[in-house]
Amino acid sequence: MVGAGVVEAYGVMLSASLGDSYAITETLVRAAPMIFTGLAVAIAFRAKFWNIGAEGQLLAGAVASCFVGAIPMPGYLAMLLMALAGAAAGALVALVPATLRVKFKVDDVVSSLLLNSVIYYALMALIEGPWKDTFSGYPISPPIEDSANFPVLIEGTRLHLGVVVALIAAPLCWFLISRTTLGFRIRVTGENPEAARYGGINVQRVLLSTALLSGALAGLAGVGEVGGVHFQVMSDISPGYGYSGIVVAMLARLNPLGVVPAAIFLAAVMTGAEAMSRATGVPAFLSDVIQGTALLAMLVALLFTAYRIRRVGASA
């Protein structure tokens, strides 16, 4: 892959991710779970609750919503209950590292990472065991009811209702962080827990609330994948959307409004890399490399803007 090949490859990448309206809808479908996990991480990191467990919370949300979605009931009721169940499952999972930190001083990074493995194996045990789809015999869960499938918004695409919910969730989270007392407490606790405590904020309660909120958002990412994309649970339902959420949140500088473009950017990289892989044979894992690089590059960029501000501040 040299010279013209590179240009051609990037051309394929771009046209497959943003080239026509279908490509754009595919990118949006990809972006939706990362908007949710990005919001989950952004809110958690604002409070300096180091939730690296969005992946596990997403999986828990997927499992819970799939359970509910398989129960016959009117479509919109099913969708609502799926969302509630998924959010609740994600929130409960996130509560574990937060509680361990508050009660036992367990490092939240380590516990939330380890919990990802626990949830993943639990999901695998479910779909290999009691929950295995008897019809297909594959290690996948039985599908949800057809009536519970999220409606497709544009005929001929996979653009589903969940994508719109994700796009609405971002400004809601922004409002929560910047215009509510909980958001105020989250920001102050994250910036300076000592001043927060001194100022009468119950820091432990803020951390637990943040965890519930963050986990619920990550859980919703799983709900969208079950209700709008896969209609069942399988082992690779998330290609690491939980970890991508960390990249998204950092690219957005922890601002919920910035999460949307950041998630769309990463989604475009992913869909583009897959198309490029099909066209040129370059492994699609290129998108994972780009993600890691983007995160590290963003951190360095942040550092240099911080330096500039400091220098401007000093000379003023």
Partner: peptide
Amino acid sequence: TTGLVTNL
């Protein structure tokens, strides 16, 4: 450290 939140 105790009184103010310097980054906000």
